[in-house]
């Protein structure tokens, strides 16, 4: 047991006892159940393109991200080589397939200009890329530009479906990235790249298969 012994167990029992007493005479409330589909926030941005990949593209772009759609390995490789030209070094998360690693010198995440990771899922409804801590978090967070590969078949319509798909295999930390880092804390003027990456590029691999 990891429960902290020093006075902790007493506090735990006292808190739980107070909760039971507080709720003692209160009528319990039933869980209203799964959110009815009709109440789900809309998937398509502006009610326009309902296809999940289209909607993901529209929502992520609206949040200041960039989405590139690539039809197959050749076009992905060609695009990557050109994209990589503006960077001097890269920090790549574990598990990004060889083919999707730019040919740039590797650097520590805190020094690299570009971080590359592979999403474990995506949600069109919120324009979110799901990232797992199992591939390492530093490359997802420290470089100023973040390139995220995402397979079209992993793009879910709703956030609920995207999380549900990870349910059996939750890492230490799952993260949603839904745009570049931003803040309006200085005079309500939006500034990007405050702490996390100021540029987010999602590269969608449209052809199903092994990447």
């Amino acid at each position: 047991m990891n429960r902290e012994a020093e006075g902790g167990a007493g506090a735990r029992d006292r808190i739980l006892a107070r909760i039971r007493e507080a709720n003692g005479s209160r009528e319990t409330v039933e869980h209203p159940g799964t959110l009815p589909a009709g109440l789900e926030p809309p998937v398509a941005y502006g009610g326009q393109r309902p296809d999940p990949v289209d909607a993901l593209e529209d929502r992520l772009s609206a949040a200041g991200g960039r989405v590139v759609r690539l039809s197959g390995p050749d076009s992905a490789r060609r695009w990557l080589e050109e994209f990589a030209q503006e960077f001097a070094s890269v920090s790549i998360c574990e598990g990004v397939p060889e083919l999707l690693c730019p040919s740039l010198p590797n650097a520590q995440p805190e020094q690299a200009g570009l971080g590359v990771s592979m999403a474990v899922g995506a949600a069109a409804q919120t324009g979110s890329l799901l990232l797992s801590s199992t591939e390492g978090r530093r490359s997802q967070l420290l470089p100023p530009t973040h390139l995220v590969w995402v397979r079209a078949q992993d793009v879910h319509a709703t956030l609920g479906a995207a999380l549900e798909a990870r349910m059996g295999d939750l890492p230490a930390a799952l993260a949603l990235h839904s745009g570049p880092s931003k803040s309006a804390d200085i005079g309500r003027i939006i500034v990007t790249g405050v702490h996390g990456p100021g540029r987010l590029v999602a590269a969608v691999l449209e052809e199903s298969g092994d990447w």
Binding site: L159, A172, S181, G196
Partner: peptide
């Protein structure tokens, strides 16, 4: 639609996790 970053944390990472 959702905050720019969401963390969903289940446990320690690193060598422990």
């Amino acid at each position: 639609p959702v905050g720019t970053f969401v963390s969903i944390i289940q446990g320690p990472g690193g060598s422990r996790g």
